[in-house]
């Protein structure tokens, strides 16, 4: 007879998992480590399935920012809207902005999307739930990587020399993704229960786009400036774009504050996601 003493014992009880925070943190870390292989599998599965049943394939990752750029450049040329000269050619400015914005929006949408797509699996199989978030994060990074090709192309076309700060762009983008992921994961528990959240996110991000200096430079005065000041995306997006194009950083303090806060809240969101999951599954149809 095999000895059962060495076996790991798992206890399920109605008590809050927060009652034993040390065990909870240990389990969270263990599951995060254990979920890497599965996350990779799910990521590869999602990506390959996504583009296999499509004629245009990876082109779909390029199209939205390209169209946004085309529209804004057109409006600008026709002087329908007046924006200040950002210091680099308009198409480059608009395209870098929309690529970064799109990545931020992808990150917000990602957690709820992967969880909703995996309802069946969640309700039937006990696997480390972190894998879904990681797989979603992988997709966000993958789509960003594809769009980088677009940036490379337009930088070459306009013969723009990248500044020395360009290595900072990747960490900067990660900060932007962290910010988006934080919003996304905090909204996921409620979003799994109520579809209002998902709908709300898409409307709000649509508005948010216009309140953020994505396709226009940082406004200097007026209500737009106040909005831009309060908007947590502003410092991060502007800083990354400046690192990429101009080689300076005019909102570095804001960047650091937002990044730190979003890391803290992302960790809290992870905790919430984890302890909410059994309750969410209990309410899911199975």
């Amino acid at each position: 007879m095999m000895s059962n003493l060495a076996l790991k014992e798992t206890v399920y009880s109605p008590d809050s998992q927060l009652r034993n925070p040390r065990l909870l943190v240990r389990e969270m870390l263990a599951d995060l480590m254990a979920s890497r292989g599965l996350a990779w599998r799910l990521f590869v599965r999602n990506i390959s399935a996504q583009y296999r049943q499509s004629l245009l394939g990876y082109l779909w990752a390029f199209l939205p920012p390209l169209f946004t750029m085309a529209v804004w450049v057109f409006l600008n040329e026709q002087n329908i809207i007046n924006v200040e000269d950002p210091g680099i050619p308009d198409p480059v400015f608009v395209l870098t902005g929309t690529v970064l914005w799109q990545t931020f929006v992808d990150a917000i949408n990602s957690p709820l999307k992967v969880v909703n797509e995996s309802r069946g699996m969640l309700a039937k199989i006990n696997f480390p739930r972190e894998a879904l978030i990681l797989a979603g994060l992988g997709e966000v990074l993958f789509n960003f990587a594809i769009r980088v090709l677009l940036l490379v192309a337009i930088f070459t076309w306009f013969q723009i020399a990248v500044p020395a700060t360009v290595p900072l762009v990747l960490p900067g983008v990660l900060a932007l993704i962290t910010l988006g992921l934080m919003f996304g994961i905090l909204l996921t528990p409620l979003g799994v229960l109520y579809s209002d959240i998902g709908r709300g996110i898409s409307i709000i991000t649509g508005f948010w786009f216009f309140l953020t200096p994505v396709v226009y430079p940082m406004p200097k005065s007026g209500i737009a400036a106040e909005f831009a000041q309060l908007n947590p995306v502003t410092p991060v997006l502007i800083t990354v774009r400046e690192w990429l194009t101009l080689g300076r950083a005019s909102q570095l303090t804001g960047f650091w504050i937002v990044s730190t806060v979003s890391v803290v809240f992302l960790l809290f969101g992870w905790l919430l996601y984890r302890i909410a999951m059994p309750h969410l599954i209990a309410r899911m149809s199975a």
């Binding site: 009880s13 599965r45 049943q53 699996m121 199989i125 059994p278």
Partner: peptide
């Protein structure tokens, strides 16, 4: 461990396998 009990306690030892829904997570295109 998919849902929590509202009362009582469950203790499980070792690796738990579940044949609950076969092929959950299959992607039809792959």
């Amino acid at each position: 461990g998919l849902i929590k009990p509202d009362r009582g306690e469950i203790r499980m030892r070792g690796r738990v396998g579940a044949l609950i829904e076969l092929g959950a997570g299959f992607n039809p295109i792959l």
